[in-house]
């Protein structure tokens, strides 16, 4: 049980860190997108700890995988506007 709580704390710190990395405007847009995908992936592990394997699978496949690729497809098309 304590192991679970420790893991949840680690995941929480990781998620908050990646979320701040994703939303601060300092870094390049590609790193922001990857950080948002990473936050989503950590959230899917958290769902697994919360006893929701269905949601964990959905988040990993759709929220983390497909969304990141959609972002990258658009990012590749708008290269010139990236630094506005």
């Amino acid at each position: 049980m304590n192991l679970n709580i420790g893991m949840a704390l680690l995941l929480a710190i990781g998620m908050i860190g990646t979320a701040i990395m994703a939303t601060r405007g300092k870094r390049s847009l590609g790193i922001s997108i990857l950080a948002a995908g990473l936050a989503s992936l950590l959230a899917s592990v958290m769902f697994l700890l919360l006893g929701a394997p269905d949601v964990a699978m959905t988040e990993a496949a759709i929220g983390s995988g497909l969304t990141t690729f959609l972002f990258f497809f658009v990012l590749g098309r708008v290269r010139r506007g990236e630094n506005d």
Partner: peptide, 14 residues
């Protein structure tokens, strides 16, 4: 098992 149409559909799309 965990999983279903939405997850499977996303895997096929990948």
């Amino acid at each position: 098992t965990p999983g279903g149409g939405f997850q499977g559909g996303a895997i096929i799309a990948s």
